[in-house]
Design a binder for these strands. Structure first.
Lengths: 217, 217
DNA sequence: ATTATTTTTTAGGCTACTCTAAAAATTATA
DNA sequence: TATAATTTTTAGAGTAGCCTAAAAAATAAT
């Protein structure tokens, strides 16, 4: 059984490695966890000893199969709870994260299976991120940032990167929610700002904003 | 902010003191927490320093107003989550406790208020125990064990003491659920076993069972 | 290629919570 | 009331997770 701290480190490693596809550096992980590199080195040793990650001194960390499964099951819990908070308790989009961070550490497979059933087996959370099944399997759709979408092209919003609360509120305001259709009307070359249409509503967005909206084409 | 461990000790103290009405001994608390007396002494000092309990050496612990409020807010969370698990996720009666023990430590007033609203402002949990309001106020009905009920008298089941899982299953089987009517038909003097009627069903119960069923008259 | 910079690791220490063993205080017994 | 038994507290130590400061390794720059 993993401790709360071990779970948090493992999840951070999984995300930083982009689903286990690249190595994660100690400093990078330390920053993500808001701890010092020395503490991170300790935890890396612990997680390696449990065969969740592989670790090579001065090189970095790679996620092993066992660690990937554990991370995906935590993510599964996180996303199911987020869905619950938004759909059943009427949380707004920017309120869910903090609470879901706590709920994801509740240990009970039975609870999560029942919750999933109660929610009607959702395949994506309110951000549009896919929810792994109980075996940790994940369906990944190819996603690109709106900043990389050509003029005239359109896509379906699948997610927004939840970097900060203010951005989330802004995206909410312009209607940038998962599931909605989006079309690029024009682009200003010198600063990559764009005119886009979301649900028949025309908005101007800077590149800082457009790159945080992810779509499938 | 209290740590998870502090919350658990405080809750145990509150329950052992029967809602703050009597002093709690160190050994008693140690046993309830499954720790040793030495550890308990340490924690008692910590909680006293935070002015949640009062503490007199070699005498015991009393709950202070601040501690009582904190305990009641934890109990509020516990009972709301239990209600959620049973009513929304279809947990059986004996499955809820372990999970609710974890959920009660999630820190978010907003979450609990929303959950309460979602559940329709229930006044009692599935065991029949009253749910404190958001200010920690509790409505207490006078309750007695069925073992103390005279022959011919009847009452409404308000709670069962959840001592062990087997007992809970048995009580469930004989229909001893909160809200149901119960009547004492006869009593055997030499061992205090009783014949009782629950919802038109006649059952024989030993004193060990009857004392675990609480009713209001 | 040697020096400087950055990154990572080691060494040692702190806090929260736990323990065992021994000392102290209280309560029961003879 | 003096002794025995019990309860509680203190003393000292271990683990998890965190820190700072210094050493070591890798990388960059001259």
């Amino acid at each position: 059984m993993l401790s709360l701290t071990e779970e948090n480190y493992l999840k951070a490693i999984y995300h930083l490695s982009q689903g286990g596809t690249k190595a994660v550096l100690t400093n990078e992980l330390a920053e993500a966890m808001c701890t010092k590199a020395a503490s991170t080195t300790d935890m890396i040793k612990k997680l390696s000893a449990k065969a969740l990650i592989s670790y090579e001194k001065y090189y970095g960390v790679n996620v092993l199969a066992k660690g990937k499964l554990a991370a995906l099951l935590i993510i599964r819990k996180h996303r199911l709870w987020e869905t619950f908070l938004v759909e059943k308790l009427n949380f707004t989009w920017d309120e869910v994260h903090e609470v879901a961070e706590q709920l994801e550490h509740i240990h009970s497979v039975h609870l999560i299976d029942k919750l999933e059933e109660f929610l009607g087996y959702p395949t994506a959370d309110p951000h549009g991120d896919p929810i792994p099944d109980r075996k940790g399997h994940l369906k990944i759709l190819p996603q690109i940032g709106v900043d990389q979408l050509k003029v005239g092209y359109s896509g379906t919003i699948v997610a927004v990167k939840d970097s900060d609360s203010n951005l989330l509120k802004y995206l909410d305001k312009i209607g940038a929610k998962p599931g909605r259709k989006l079309k690029v009307v024009s682009r200003e070359e010198y600063d990559d700002s764009m005119e886009i249409v979301i649900d028949d509503k025309k908005v101007f967005v800077s590149k800082d904003v457009s790159k945080n909206i992810l779509v499938t084409v």
